[in-house]
Computed example of a mutant assay.
Amino acid sequence: MPRPQRCEQFISSDVCVVHVTQRCVRRAWLAGVDPLSGRDYSYRKEWIRRRMEALASVFAIDVLTYAIMSNHLHLVLRSRPDVCAQWTDEDVAIRWLRVFPGKRLEEHLAEPNENDVKMLVRNKERIHQIRSRLSDISWFMRALSEPIARIANKQDECTGRFWEGRFKAQRIVDEAGLLACSMYVDLNPVRAAVASSPENAPHTSAYDRAKSKSGEKINSAAFDLKPVSTEEAVHEIRDKSLNDLRQKQAKKRNRPIDKRVSPDAWLSPLRLKPDKLASDAEVHTEGVRSSNRGFLNVDWETYWELLRWTARQSVETASTEIPRSLAKSLRKVGIDAPLWRDLVWNWPRYFGQTSCVGSPEAMKEHAETVGRRHHRGQALAAHCFC
Rank of each mutant, 00 (worst) to 15 (best):
Q155R: 12
K45N: 03
W96I: 12
V121K: 13
K45W: 06
I151E: 15
P147Y: 03
L73K: 06
W163P: 01
D116A: 11
N115P: 08
V121F: 12
C84G: 01
R104Y: 08
A93K: 02
D156H: 00
T159G: 15
I94Q: 07
L97C: 05
E106H: 11
F140R: 03
D40W: 10
E53M: 04
L144A: 11
D136C: 15
E146N: 11
Y41S: 11
D62C: 05
R80S: 00
F100L: 02
L120T: 14
W47L: 02
Y41G: 07
K45L: 01
Y43G: 10
L73Y: 10
L105Y: 03
N153R: 07
E111I: 08
I68S: 13
Y66C: 04
G102L: 13
E146K: 10
S57G: 03
I61S: 04
E46P: 04
W139H: 15
R131A: 05
K45G: 03
A152K: 07
G160T: 07
E164K: 09
M69W: 02
D91N: 09
G165W: 01
S57N: 08
S145P: 04
L55T: 05
A85C: 10
T88M: 04
G160W: 02
S79G: 08
V117F: 05
Y66R: 04
P81Q: 13
R39P: 05
R98F: 09
T159C: 14
L77A: 09
D91H: 08
E106M: 08
R98M: 11
